[in-house]
C-alpha cells in the first residue's frame, strides 16, 4: 500500500528531525501503524513541565483517513476527553476536514498549539470549557494539579 511507504518516510523524518517538543517511537517494532509520542508541553503554557504520552493510531487507509489520537497521560483540557481514551478531535483530525497531504508532524504541531491555547468553543469537555471561559483561575489550578499528579 502506498500509505506504508509514506509512513516509513514520515517516521524516518520525524525521528531524525522531530517536531518541537516531541519524541517519537513505535509502540511495537513490527507495527508501523501505532506510534508513541512523548510531548513536552510548551514552556509558556499552563501545562509547562508536563510530559504527555500520546498514542497515535494510524488507520490502514492513511493518508486518506486521519490518524486517531489518544492522550495516555491524563490532562485537564477542554479539547481532550476526560476518560481513559483521552481522545482529541479537532480541526484537521476530523474525518471531514482531513486532507491527505497533512502529515503526522502537522498533527503533532496542532496538538501542541492546542495544548498551549485551548479552544473552548470547540470543546469535547463542556464543563472544562465553561470553567476555562468563566473561572480561569480555578481551571489553571486544576490543570496544574493534574500536571503535577500525572505528567511528571
Amino acid at each position: 500500500m502506498a500509505g506504508n511507504k509514506r509512513l516509513m518516510k514520515e517516521l524516518a523524518e520525524n525521528q531524525s528531525t522531530p517536531p518541537p517538543g516531541c519524541k517519537i517511537s513505535l509502540e511495537n517494532d513490527d507495527d508501523i501503524l501505532l506510534w508513541n509520542v512523548t510531548m513536552t508541553a510548551p514552556s509558556d503554557s499552563i501545562y509547562a513541565g508536563g510530559n504527555f504520552k500520546i498514542l497515535i493510531k494510524i488507520p490502514k487507509e492513511y493518508p486518506f483517513k486521519p490518524p486517531v489520537l489518544n492522550f495516555k497521560t491524563k490532562v485537564y483540557h477542554p479539547n481532550v476527553t476526560n476518560d481513559e481514551n483521552g481522545s482529541m478531535c479537532l480541526g484537521m483530525l476530523r474525518p471531514d476536514e482531513w486532507k491527505p497531504p497533512n502529515k503526522i508532524s502537522d498533527v503533532l504541531k496542532l496538538v501542541r498549539t492546542v495544548l498551549a491555547a485551548p479552544q473552548p468553543d470547540d470543546a469535547v469537555e463542556q464543563g472544562i470549557a465553561d470553567q476555562y471561559k468563566n473561572n480561569r483561575k480555578e481551571f489553571e489550578k486544576v490543570a496544574k494539579d493534574w500536571v503535577n499528579k500525572y505528567a511528571k
Binding site: 486518506f64 484537521m92 471531514d96 486532507k99 491527505p100 497531504p101 497533512n102 502537522d106
Partner: peptide, 17 residues
Amino acid sequence: NNAIMEGDVAVIRCLDP
C-alpha cells in the same frame, strides 16, 4: 476512487490543506 465508492461526495475537492 475510494471516496466515490464510499459515497463521500463532499471530499471530492482539492486535497491541499
